[in-house]
Design a protein around this nucleic acid. Structure first.
Length: 217
DNA sequence: CTTCAGATGCTCT
DNA sequence: GAGCATCTGAAGA
């Protein structure tokens, strides 16, 4: 029953903007030392190399870094940004089409103490309300809380990291409000001014329900 | 609540 | 050598 409810490569082998929208409300699971750290995905962005100047692999640009974007759908793409933070992406479309969804924010759902330790070096109970609210409300913070680095770049979704459809698929109790159909807003992506006209594409998606408190900036 | 400077190192020109 | 799909802490409104 463990694999039921996990998103498969087929989910990711589709239009990237659609995948970015549909990942909202799904559960990102990071398994660390046998413990599942669980976030409800609250903010995503689509990057499409074929046509998108904001994408590292724009116009099929192939370098050591972008090589992962050409991998099969469901591959994990993690890169270092500003010398000290990491960004988590999930590769989409057919193999050879360089595209991915950036996971920008999530709401803590399970193993709060480990998430808090990874990010602040303290347990959940010792965090201020502001720290709790901001635990995973940005791509760098999310990677820190989940202990994801370039060590995980290029792996396939599987044992160490995967996306689940529901909490029940993880044998976790329901979370109040998570059962409702997600309300979604779209807007321009963050920090891509260098991309010219493509910076205006409404390819950033956020939850606007309770999850709206957990999206970046 | 807001703005702002500085951190820090990899990637590509 | 320039720039980057970011974050933090300090200072002010």
């Amino acid at each position: 029953m463990a694999d039921l409810g996990r998103l498969t490569p087929g989910f990711f082998a589709r239009d990237t903007v659609t995948v970015a929208r549909e990942l909202l409300g799904k559960y990102l699971v990071r398994v660390l030392d046998g413990q599942p750290l669980v976030l409800r995905i609250a903010e995503t962005e689509a990057y499409v190399g074929r046509r998108d100047r904001a994408c590292h692999a724009w116009n099929y640009r192939r370098t050591a870094r972008t090589e992962t974007l050409f991998a099969p759908p469901g591959t994990v793409y993690i890169y270092l940004i500003y010398g000290m933070y990491h960004c988590l992406n999930l590769v989409t479309e057919e193999e050879g089409e360089p595209a991915a969804v950036l996971i920008r924010a999530g709401q803590p759902r399970h193993n709060f103490d480990i998430l808090a330790e990874n990010r602040f070096g303290r347990k959940w109970g010792d965090l201020s309300p502001a720290q709790r609210r901001r635990l995973c409300d940005g791509p760098g913070k999310l990677c820190r809380a989940l202990s994801l680095t370039r060590a995980e770049n290029g792996i396939a979704l599987g044992e160490a990291l995967f996306v689940a459809d529901s909490l029940s698929a993880l044998s976790l109790p329901p979370w109040p409000g998570d059962g409702e159909p997600p309300r979604i807003a779209a807007g321009p992506r963050i920090g891509v001014d260098y991309a010219g006209e493509d910076a205006l594409l409404p390819w950033r998606f956020t939850l606007t329900d309770e999850g709206g408190k957990y999206v970046s900036l």
